[in-house]
Simulated assay, not measured.
Amino acid sequence: MTKQISLDALWDSATSQDRVFHLDDFTHLPEAARRYLEHAIAPGTKLASAVRLKMHGEIKLKSWIPFKAEQVICWEHGLIWSATAWMNSFLPIVGSDRIIDGIGAMQWKLLGLFPVMTASGSDITRSAIGRLQSESLWLPSVFCGDGVSWASPDSSDLDSNLHPSFVVQGERAELDFTLDQTGCLKTCKLPRWGNPDDAEFRYVDFGGILEEEGTFCGYTIPTRLRIGWYFGSDRFESEGEFFRGTIDDAIYR
């Protein structure tokens, strides 16, 4: 499989699993982790290896512009985000971001013809892996794997902090979740490789606010969210936030 694989081919590559979700299999986990999994996955739901999403929203380039997108996350191989955004409300920019089998790339064209952004290389790959790590929250079955470790540092009457850690595409994810007493995710943060200020690449706090959720095929996932760099600081609101999205549909395999 190469980085040129299509969205449909990535979806078709997903392997079906026979295992289904039973909370009794996770009694050894911290209480907050059990609460999250019980909220995110209905009993008896087949543990999926892939999700296909449709979404719309706004993305910030120099200004906020609307987009529509389709995305496939196939945990065995990676993700493709294929989108169209409209500059000045009528000029389409068409392209994709992807991380497939350890190779990351970005390619965007004005009117689908004229290149406006093309990027690849080791820094782009590491940053794209960070994106895959953060978007695991759309594939909650990932957190049922044997390779996930959990910590729940502290909690209050209002919410809990939860720290899942796992390795994907050769990089360790160190996620920080905030969830309420029902198990609903409220925020997500992780160190992600990037250069949001056009300086040298480095790990920068990345994440966002998860404002609404919905249920699809037995999975309850965030459906309206605000995402960006410098999450957890004042810089998120002023310069870091660059993505405001709404999930319209999700199917699992």
Rank of each mutant, 00 (worst) to 15 (best):
E213G: 12
K186M: 11
V204A: 03
G112C: 02
S156P: 12
P222S: 02
E211I: 11
E211C: 06
D146E: 04
I221G: 00
F177A: 00
L137F: 02
L158M: 14
S134D: 08
Y219G: 00
Q107W: 15
R224M: 02
T215N: 14
Q169V: 10
E135S: 09
V116F: 08
D176G: 06
V204M: 13
T187R: 09
F114E: 08
T215P: 14
G183H: 09
T187H: 15
D198I: 08
A119Y: 09
P222Y: 09
D205N: 15
I129W: 14
E213C: 11
R126H: 09
F166Y: 07
M106W: 05
A105E: 05
P140S: 05
D146V: 01
L113K: 10
T215Y: 13
A128K: 14
A105C: 02
W150K: 00
L111M: 11
A199S: 08
G170C: 02
G145D: 10
D146Q: 02
G170R: 06
I124M: 09
A119K: 07
P196M: 06
V204N: 08
I129F: 12
P140K: 05
L137I: 06
G218F: 15
I209T: 07
C184K: 10
A119M: 02
D176I: 10
R126M: 08
D157Q: 12
F201Y: 15
I221W: 05
D154P: 14
E213K: 15
A199C: 03
N161R: 11
A119T: 03
P191V: 06
G218V: 11
G112Q: 06
P196W: 10
S152T: 03
V142L: 08
F177S: 01
F216E: 13
G112T: 01
C217P: 10
E211F: 07
F114I: 14
L190S: 10
E135Q: 13
W138F: 05
Q133M: 09
R126G: 00
C188N: 08
C188R: 03
S120G: 04
F206A: 02
N195G: 05
